[in-house]
């Protein structure tokens, strides 16, 4: 379980997070929604300890990640897979080597075993033939899928997705959504999806939390989201419905 308590963060005097409280239960898929610049990605980077809060606490399975040593934090991070907004594939490595990287770094698997796992992961993201291609040779959607294969190679317990469908065409977005849903079902991982794409949220999430003015303005299940008459939430959902042509 991941718990965020009273999290504050500002950059250069500009306040971004103003007391975030959030709990993510084992096995659930939580979508963190909100406008661009509302602090969703900043919140995600705090959850994995890439940013230090000004105040507040983040616990992963009961451990406060900001009070542990760097070595312990790295061990905790090995339970996470992260899909960054742009994929963040290592551009000096082929797709195969990108997916194999965490396996070569953190396991004692033989090259043959690594090859099997990597090909399995690439098959899972429906890109079986791209192993030899460099990231620059792949489209944006393909890069995200390879990055997703890399994120799940070590079978993490938690997967964080930062805007997984941003900048993609609707068909590729649907493919990514399906992959996220399949991963949640097959691997029983706990997923946190940072997005402003309501179409994705309705497809993949069990719960949603709306970040507004640096706080969790609204949180609930997808059913509750449909029924909610909160003005800010409705306005956000409505803007998205307009964008996706509903």
């Amino acid at each position: 379980m991941i718990s965020v308590q009273n999290l504050y963060k500002s950059f250069g005097g500009k306040s971004v997070l103003n007391g975030i409280d959030l709990e993510i239960m084992e096995g659930e898929t939580l979508a963190i929604i909100g406008r661009s610049g509302s602090g969703k990605s900043v919140l995600m980077k705090h959850i994995i300890g890439l940013l230090q809060p000004d105040s507040g606490k983040i616990t992963v399975d009961g451990t406060d990640i900001n009070s542990v040593s760097y070595a312990d934090l790295r061990r905790i991070r090995q339970n996470f897979g992260v899909l960054f907004q742009g994929g963040a594939l290592f551009d000096s490595m082929s797709s195969f080597d990108n997916v194999a990287f965490p396996l070569r770094t953190f396991t004692t698997m033989s090259e043959k075993e690594i090859e099997n796992v990597v090909l399995g992961c690439l098959n899972m993201v429906e890109l079986p033939g791209v192993g030899t291609k460099m990231p620059a040779e792949l489209s944006g959607g393909m890069q995200k899928r390879v990055a997703l294969a890399r994120a799940v190679a070590l079978k993490p317990r938690y997967i964080l997705y930062d805007e997984p469908t941003s900048g993609l065409d609707p068909e590729t977005s649907n493919t990514i959504d399906e992959l996220i849903q399949n991963l949640a079902d097959q691997l029983n991982v706990t997923s946190i999806v940072v997005t402003h794409d309501m179409h994705s949220v309705l497809n993949i999430a069990d719960k949603a939390a709306l970040v507004h003015e640096g706080r969790i303005h609204w949180a609930g299940t997808i059913d509750e989201l449909h029924r909610s008459d909160d003005q800010i939430l409705r306005s956000f959902v409505k803007a998205n419905e307009y964008l996706i042509g509903k």
């Binding site: 890439l50 790295r74 991070r77 090995q78 996470f80 992260v82 960054f84 963040a88 290592f90 965490p102």
Partner: peptide
């Protein structure tokens, strides 16, 4: 391009 963040996020 967040590649350094990706390394850190993996636990490296």
């Amino acid at each position: 391009t967040e590649q350094i963040d990706a390394l850190e996020a993996m636990g490296l």
